[in-house]
Design a protein around this nucleic acid. Structure first.
Lengths: 206, 206
DNA sequence: GTCTATACCCGGATAGAC
DNA sequence: GTCTATCCGGGTATAGAC
C-alpha cells in the first residue's frame, strides 16, 4: 500500500518499531508465517539487530500479544455505556469481540493462535488475559447476583459464542467484507440475548 | 515412543500410508509444523516418493481434511438417536463437536486450521463440509418448521457455540485432560439447550 | 514407484568488528 | 546498538537413474 519506505527508525526507537512492524507483518502473513528476518528487512536493519531488544522470536511475539490484549479489552467495552443494563452490555461485548477479531485480525491471531501458555515465562501476558476475562465475569455477576454457579456457566457460554463467531469469521482465508462483519456482530449479540433469556436451562441436568 | 520402525509400507500402499502417517504427525506437531520431509522419514521412504502420489503438500493436506470431515460428521450424530427430539439431538451434536475437537485434535485442526478455501481446487473438500453443515441445518429445521429465518440464525448460533467451546479447548498448548473435555462437552450441550429455550429473542431487533 | 542426489530458498541465531 | 558475515538446520520440489 505505501510504496515508499521512509526508514524513519534507523536510529530511533527500534524496539517500538519492531512491535509496530510485527503487527503489520502479522496482519499480512499471519502469526505462523511471521519471521524476524522479514521484519528486519522491512525496517531496514540487519537480522541481528532485533536480538539486542528481544531474546528470541517468542519474546517479541509475547510483547505483541500483551499490546493486543489491552486493545482487545478496550474493544469489549467500547460498544456500550456503563449505565446500560447488564444484558445489553454483554450483548455489546460479544459484538465487540467479533468485530475486534475481524478488524484486528493480526492482534486477535496473536492472542489466540499463539501459545498463551500460563506456564510460559510471560506472566504479563497471562495477567492481561485474566483482566479481559474479568471484564466479562463481573458483568455477568451483575446480571445474576447470588447465583455464582449459573453466572460462571453463563460467562463461559457467552465467551464461547463470541469466540465461535469470531473464529468462524477469521478462519476464512479471505478477509470478510464489512457487511459480513456487521452481520456476524449482530448475530453474536442476538445469540447472547437469547442465551441469557433461556439461561434457566443451565441449571437443569446435563 | 515406538523404538522400532517396522517399515511395513515400503512396497505396499504408500498413498494410504501417507494419509495415515500425516494424521499421526499432525497430531504430534500440529498442521502448520507438519512437513513432507519428516513424514517421508517416518515411513522410511525418501522425500521424493510422496510426490508420486500428491502434487504438493497442500494436496496431501486436503486429502487428510476430507477424511477428517467424514469422521467429524459421524461424531456429530453418534451421541444421539434419530428418535430423540430435535433439541436433544442438537445438544448432543454440540457435545459431539466439542468432543471430536478435543479427542481428534489433529483432524479438527486440519479442517479448521487449514485454508479450507471454497475457491481452492478441492471441491471434494467443500462438499464434505457442506454435508456436515447440512446435518445441523436439517435438524434445526425440524425444530422450528415454518420459520426459516429463525432456523438459520439458530443453526448459526449453535455452530458458533460448539465451535467456540471447541477452539477454546484446543487452543491451549497442553492437551486437555478427560475430565476437562467432559466438562466442556456438557457445558456446550447445556448452552445449546438454553439458547433454544431463549431463541424467541432472535426475532427481536438488533 | 522408488531412490540418489541435488538445487534452491528460507528461517533462527551468534561472533566479533565498528 | 547496529552491521558484516556466517553457521546451521529445515523445508519443497525436481531430474534422472534404476
Amino acid at each position: 500500500m505505501s510504496p515508499e519506505r521512509p526508514k524513519p527508525y534507523h536510529h530511533g526507537d527500534l524496539k517500538a518499531a519492531l512491535i509496530d512492524g510485527a503487527v503489520e507483518l502479522i496482519a499480512e502473513r499471519g502469526v505462523r508465517d511471521f519471521s524476524m528476518a522479514e521484519l528486519s528487512r522491512r525496517l531496514g536493519v540487519t537480522v541481528a539487530a532485533p536480538y539486542r531488544h528481544f531474546a528470541d522470536r517468542d519474546e517479541l511475539l509475547a510483547a505483541v500479544a500483551v499490546r493486543a490484549l489491552r486493545v482487545f479489552g478496550q474493544a469489549l467495552t467500547a460498544q456500550s455505556s456503563e449505565t446500560d443494563p447488564p444484558e445489553r452490555r454483554l450483548a455489546a461485548m460479544a459484538g465487540g469481540y467479533v468485530r475486534f477479531a475481524a478488524q484486528q485480525r493480526a492482534l486477535f491471531s496473536v492472542v489466540f493462535g499463539f501459545g498463551l501458555d500460563k506456564k510460559g515465562p510471560y506472566p504479563e501476558l497471562r495477567q492481561a488475559y485474566e483482566d479481559v476475562e474479568g471484564t466479562l465475569g463481573s458483568c455477568v455477576a451483575e446480571l445474576c447476583p447470588g447465583d455464582a454457579d449459573t453466572a460462571e456457566q453463563l460467562a463461559d457460554a457467552i465467551e464461547a459464542i463470541a469466540h465461535g463467531y469470531a473464529t468462524l469469521l477469521t478462519d476464512q482465508p479471505e478477509s470478510p467484507d464489512p457487511a459480513a462483519v456487521d452481520h456476524a456482530v449482530g448475530r453474536a449479540a442476538r445469540a447472547v440475548l437469547a442465551l441469557i433469556r433461556g439461561s434457566a436451562a443451565l441449571r437443569e441436568g446435563a
